[in-house]
Design a protein around this nucleic acid. Structure first.
Lengths: 152, 152
DNA sequence: CTAGTTTAGTCAGATGATCTGACGAAAGGA
DNA sequence: TCCTTTCGTCAGATCATCTGACTAAACTAG
């Protein structure tokens, strides 16, 4: 009568429990973005969109904020610039630097990202109920607060 | 008196809230593994360790369970085999197939993985309190339950 | 039993997402 | 005016995936 189960199946690790909803969320959000007319945007580009300021940001600032190397960030920015989502102009205050800005199309991505994210969250709410989702979010916020430095 | 903040900072997306603890957990777990004498093990190898059965598994089974292609899984298995964590022998029941097994060293990784994971979870518990962490885990379990198919 | 189909795994090649190291040019400080 | 630090780029490596094409073995209908 006992069914054979995978050894680790009984009690999933916290890592697994975090990763599963994260992966599904990402898939929805970025998949939805493609459907909304932004097919070049991939999850890795979130590192840019999450940190870029309306007034523009420097490459080094973005890299630092995202916790990656300048070269890694440069690779992402290059792709987004080529696809028309970003534009970079020399920084008038520093001859070595460039300021990276969202184009109008890039701003549209930001908005779509917020919409998709909210919709995905609502879908989760439909699964376990809004109250539980709110409780989950609040616990995650509390945990995030304690897990500083908020290197993302 | 108002401090300039990043626009999205006020209310982080659920994705961010899930990713931050996940990333820190992974870093602890796999970083700790290197310190425990398994320096070749990277986070991607979790796809193998999470799914391999004590009686051995086929490549195709592992790929299917992990939700990736056979080729992708083959790449991971190849690395682990070369480093002495896995070994594969022809499947007596099927001339096309091979059964992939953990070596003793591979089993040691499994154990270390459980230990590190538990320790990381306890550390989280120290941050927000055991009761809240338990509540968080339970909500995540509930969510995971609803987010089937449990493709991981 | 043979012919056709499906399955297990490999080979080759591509892309994406990172990293490290070395560098030139500009800025800032003493 | 040096010296040092910072900004960004160039070159190259590695890892983690993917798609497509293929062989050999196994299953399935006649």
């Amino acid at each position: 009568m006992t069914v054979e189960r995978h050894p680790t199946e009984a009690r999933r690790s916290l890592g697994w429990l975090l990763r599963l909803p994260y992966a599904q969320l990402s898939e929805r959000v970025y998949g939805g973005l493609a459907a909304r007319g932004f097919p070049e945007i991939r999850a890795a580009h979130g590192a840019v969109f999450r940190h870029i300021l309306p007034s523009g940001s420097r490459l080094t600032e973005l890299a630092e904020a995202a916790g990656m190397t300048k070269q890694g960030m440069a690779y992402l920015v290059e792709g987004l610039t080529g696809a028309g989502y970003l534009e970079s102009r020399p920084d008038p205050a520093d001859g070595r630097a460039r300021r990276i800005h969202l184009t109008r199309r890039g701003q549209a991505v930001m908005e779509a990202l917020l919409v998709q994210s909210r919709e995905a969250e609502e879908e989760f709410g439909r699964r376990i109920g809004a109250a539980k989702l709110a409780r989950l979010r609040s616990l995650l916020e509390e945990l995030a607060e304690e897990l500083s430095p908020v290197r993302d």
